[in-house]
Each structure stands twice: as structure tokens, then as C-alpha cells.
Amino acid sequence: MFNPTNCLILSILLFAIGAYGVIAKRNILIMLMSVEIMLNAANLAFLTFARLYNDPTAHVFVLMNMAVAAAEVAVGLALLICVFRHKKSVDSTKLNLLKW
């Protein structure tokens, strides 16, 4: 039996876990993974509403979302490699030049 409440709560939980990962983890790799979890949570919410309203537009949105996520991961990981070459570390606290 389809219950939108459960699906949405699940989506919220996944989102919160992802957010925790982005904020609390100091490993850039895992921060990127957490971002993926957050995106998944958003996709889940989209599909729930698609089901609720019988609207295929949300499906298109999810596909776009995946494409953007793929692009984001590609660029993000390339940047990570770049950073690693300079700093020999993937620790986000080592990248504190933003304060100057």
C-alpha cells in the first residue's frame, strides 16, 4: 500500500543524514558522497509527488537531476585531484585560504 508520508519522511531523513555528512566530515571525498545522498533524497521526494499526482514531469526532473549529479561528481573529483596535488591531503581544514 502506497503511503506518501512514509516516503517523504524517509526522504527527509536521508537529506538530514547527507547534510550531517557534508558538515561534520572533514574528508572531501566523503563530503561529496554525502552530497549524493542529499540529491537522492531530493529525487525520492520528486518521485513520491509524481506518484501522488500522476505527473511524469517529476520523472524528467529526476533524470535531469542525475545528469547534473554526474557532472557535479566529475568536476568535484577533478578538483579534488587538483587539490590533492597541491596539498597532499583531502582534509578540508587544510584548505582554509578562504579566510584571507
Binding site: A19, K25, T93, L95, N96, K99
Partner: peptide
């Protein structure tokens, strides 16, 4: 607040 660590900025956004 302005310590240059990305995670803290992310927290502020959050």
C-alpha cells in the same frame, strides 16, 4: 566565524 574551513561555511548556510 570566518575561519576559512568550508564545512563551517556549509553549516552557516544550513
Amino acid at each position: 566565524i570566518q575561519n576559512g574551513i568550508v564545512n563551517n561555511y556549509a553549516m552557516l548556510i544550513f
